[in-house]
């Protein structure tokens, strides 16, 4: 297994952990962190899988930079909404009963 593949494997595991976290966790801050873990995993796969033969490829690196900025924007938005919900209800969780 080359270094690139090793990093990509870690990325896959991080993605799966992140998705499970977003779906299962209750606390909003944890869910937002889980989303970031998910994103980091994806970025790792994007960069590492393309470089599995050891040749650096600037295209996925630039894509990841773009992706990070988008993730920052999404995280800030999620935090703002979570904070707003906390101000309005005093809770940092989404209630389960209105799900269906």
């Amino acid at each position: 297994m080359t270094g690139g593949l090793l990093f990509a494997s870690v990325g896959v595991i991080l993605f799966a952990m992140g998705v499970a976290g977003v779906l299962l966790l209750g606390h909003l801050l944890r869910r937002i962190l889980a989303f970031n873990i998910m994103g980091s995993g994806t970025f790792l796969v994007l960069v590492a899988l393309a470089q599995r033969n050891g040749i650096a490829d600037p295209v996925p690196q630039a894509m990841v930079l773009t992706g990070i900025v988008v993730a920052v924007a999404a995280t800030a938005l999620a935090l703002a909404l979570a904070r707003r919900l906390y101000v309005l209800t005093g809770k940092l969780e989404l209630s389960q009963d209105d799900e269906e």
């Binding site: 600037p58 295209v59 690196q61 630039a62 894509m63 930079l65 773009t66 900025v69 988008v70 920052v72 924007a73 999404a74 800030a76 938005l77 703002a80 909404l81 707003r84």
Partner: peptide, 30 residues
């Protein structure tokens, strides 16, 4: 990497700045 970000795929970067600005506007709008 800068060449990809601002020239070859500069259009991605243009939209990405829009996303960032948008996030700020949403926070203001909330």
């Amino acid at each position: 990497v800068t060449a990809v970000l601002l020239n070859f795929r500069g259009y991605d970067t243009l939209l990405e700045i829009a996303v960032l600005l948008l996030a700020l506007i949403v926070i203001l709008a909330i």
